[in-house]
């Protein structure tokens, strides 16, 4: 049975979805459910109406074009995990949650929840992603991810896709968490290298309300690393170490720091993202030229199959 109750709306197209959102004005969007449904149970969210996007097949498309990769908001982590054209995205998606979560959670859901520890947000921030949205009244809009995360979804607006500009070079995503599976990472770090122009995008999650970019570290990498003759040995180690220090400094000076917990004092988080960043850069330097070599890894306190 499909259709709509007064409280649950199950549109079949983007057009229907945006119309319903415009009419309701105030409704929660439901994608994979991995964030919203537990919040409903816990009572931390009590929407009067829910717009469920499971049936909107338009949102499940993805493709590669001249202006980069476009991934529909309804694409799941599991679908991304095996997707060859986007190795960094695929590697990040593989590090998310568990098989159960990856089968359900979507790109649009990650943007809608905007969890400051969201793995995907860290990677997308490093990759200069743009968010494509649509609303019945104002039509489509493209907004840089950091702006979207700061301002949130506008009333009546639906996230339809994210777009990542094309790059050619290694991409690494690393995270630290208490348990490898299913828990959000404590901290994470993503590096996206474009060998063509030497730029390195570096973002870190789990420190501030949204994943900041480590601009000083990026400038350092741009100035010091020639990706056509990649440094090795002690020189590579020194570069990675200095890069990590700069990321730690960026973390320390980031605005809107997340509250400290008993197991994650701010000092630890700043240090940890620096360690991840140094490790990530070392891997990028070691990646063979030409290989778009992705690497992603979750580092947990326990074994793979549990804590």
């Amino acid at each position: 049975m499909t259709g709509t109750t007064a409280a649950l709306h199950r549109p079949g197209t983007v057009g229907e979805a945006t119309r319903v959102l415009a009419e309701l004005g105030d409704a929660d969007l439901l994608a994979g459910g991995t964030d919203l449904v537990p919040a409903l149970r816990a009572g931390t969210r009590r929407p009067r109406a829910i717009v469920a996007l499971r049936r909107v097949l338009e949102l499940r498309t993805r493709g590669v074009g001249a202006d980069g990769i476009v991934v529909g908001a309804g694409v799941t982590y599991a679908e991304l995990a095996g997707w060859a054209p986007a190795p960094g995205l695929a590697a990040t998606a593989r590090a998310v949650g568990s098989a159960q979560i990856r089968n359900a959670g979507t790109v649009g859901g990650a943007l809608g929840s905007a969890n400051p520890r969201g793995d995907l947000l860290t990677f997308l921030t490093a990759a200069d992603a743009q968010v494509l949205t649509c609303s019945a009244r104002r039509g489509p809009r493209t907004v840089p991810l950091p702006d979207f995360l700061l301002a949130g979804r506008r009333r009546g607006e639906l996230v339809t896709a994210v777009r990542i500009p094309p790059t050619h070079g290694p991409q690494v995503f690393l995270k630290i968490g208490g348990r490898q599976a299913a828990y959000p990472a404590l901290v994470s770090c993503a590096l996206v290298v474009d060998r063509a122009d030497g730029r390195v995008g570096c973002a870190f999650g789990g420190v501030a309300a949204t994943p900041p970019r480590a601009r000083a570290a990026e400038q350092f990498a741009l100035a010091e690393i020639d990706w056509s003759a990649v440094p090795t040995g002690a020189r590579a180690q020194a570069l990675a170490r200095r890069f990590g220090e700069l990321v730690t400094e960026a973390a320390r000076s980031a605005a809107a720091q997340l509250p400290e917990g008993p197991r994650d004092p701010a000092d630890y988080r700043w240090h940890a993202v620096g360690v991840l960043a140094a490790r990530a850069l070392a891997r990028c330097l070691a990646a063979p030229a030409g290989a778009e070599g992705p690497a992603a890894e979750g580092r947990g306190g326990g074994t793979v199959a549990g804590s």
């Binding site: 499909t2 459910g33 991995t34 159960q100 979560i101």
Partner: peptide, 18 residues
């Protein structure tokens, strides 16, 4: 759910109707 492994606690029951 439609052949995909998921946790039932994160699926909205009413949205699993078809």
């Amino acid at each position: 759910l439609d052949g995909k492994l998921v946790t039932a606690c994160t699926v909205l029951a009413a949205d699993a109707a078809d």
